[in-house]
Design a protein around this nucleic acid. Structure first.
Lengths: 191, 191
DNA sequence: GTCTATAGAAGGATAGAC
DNA sequence: GTCTATCCTTCTATAGAC
């Protein structure tokens, strides 16, 4: 592995900071300090704070989508993958790497919004496909609509982060997921 | 109605701004401009931006809790109230008046966190009680745990805001709620 | 209570040397 | 490509007159 360029260090610092404090609270100064760089370096490689944030967020989104692809790999029974995904141990205090940015005013800028959309769309698509498969296998009630349910479950996780942060209690994320799983299990018995 | 004091105008402006832009993006200047006040007035009535935000947020939380009390009034069939609550028309772009603050770093301060906790706790309690009643009436499957399910549904709405804002599509909030209602309906048939 | 004027720090970015 | 030095604006608040 070659030594990281200053540019890479800057983007790495931005990725960390976006997760830790969000976009608006991430000052150019804080990026510079964390990557041992100076204003000249940052503004040589990027025209603005928005530009470096965009690149950092695109990378973060891509990384998280690759993780999803592993969790929902083709050889895993669909409801097992879904159960595993919902019950994943998450850093609930810090919040979702992508979702935590959504309530900032700056999210109206496409540079920030598109990477977040790409991530949520990947989550929704994986869950939807899992539920579809479960239906064809007969392990899920035929009355349920996988597309709608996938939106609900994608929302559920994001809401879990909100509750866990509010009450400073990671267990709420687990509890939210368990409630949804119980419903799916119950509903599947009605076939 | 007597004319509002400058103090009331300041708090009113803060309530609006907390909803529109959040705590960190709400500058003392923006509060002053919206209430046609000057720095001297703000800092005469409140020691800091945090202090006025606390009062504004306590009022907002209380107002929303009163709305909940109407929605979940005792004379409404519990599952009807729940269905009505979940399908409420919400301003999904702006986000939840309380929940939109949760991802800011400042939420670690109790002055901001406690009013948000109070609101979510009220939501959770209303839903939990509704589900409990439905169980005793025999309209909800006895296998389901109202407390756990209430956490899931509280999370669901917050996640709905996140998705709606991300995709700039209010319909996602409705879809998330419909998915959850479909599950509850299905699960209730297994009695 | 409300005003005007101002302070000290941080934010976001630029200029120009090396 | 990275550095030092600096610029203008905004943020949060304070001082003191009315």
């Amino acid at each position: 592995m070659p030594k990281p360029s200053k540019r890479d260090q800057l983007v790495g610092a931005a990725k960390e900071l976006l997760w830790e404090v969000g976009f608006e609270a991430m000052s150019p100064r804080s990026i510079q300090e964390r990557s041992a760089a100076r204003p000249g370096s940052l503004y040589h490689h990027f025209p603005s704070k928005l530009a470096i944030a965009q690149e950092a967020l695109q990378e973060a989104s891509q990384e998280e989508i690759l993780r999803l692809n592993d969790i929902f790999a083709a050889d895993i029974p669909p409801l097992d993958a879904l159960r595993h995904y919902l019950l994943l141990k998450r850093n609930a205090f810090q919040g979702c790497r992508l979702g935590r940015l959504v309530h900032e005013a700056s999210i109206e800028q496409e540079a920030l919004r598109l990477p977040v959309m790409a991530y949520f769309e990947a989550v929704r698509a994986h869950i939807s496909r899992s539920l579809d498969q479960a239906k064809s296998e007969g392990t899920l009630n035929a009355d349920l609509d996988p597309k709608t349910l996938a939106v609900s479950l994608t929302a559920l996780i994001q809401g879990g982060y909100v509750l866990a942060r509010t009450f400073q209690d990671e267990a709420l994320m687990q509890q939210a997921a368990e409630g949804a799983l119980a419903l799916i299990t119950e509903a599947s018995r009605t076939r």
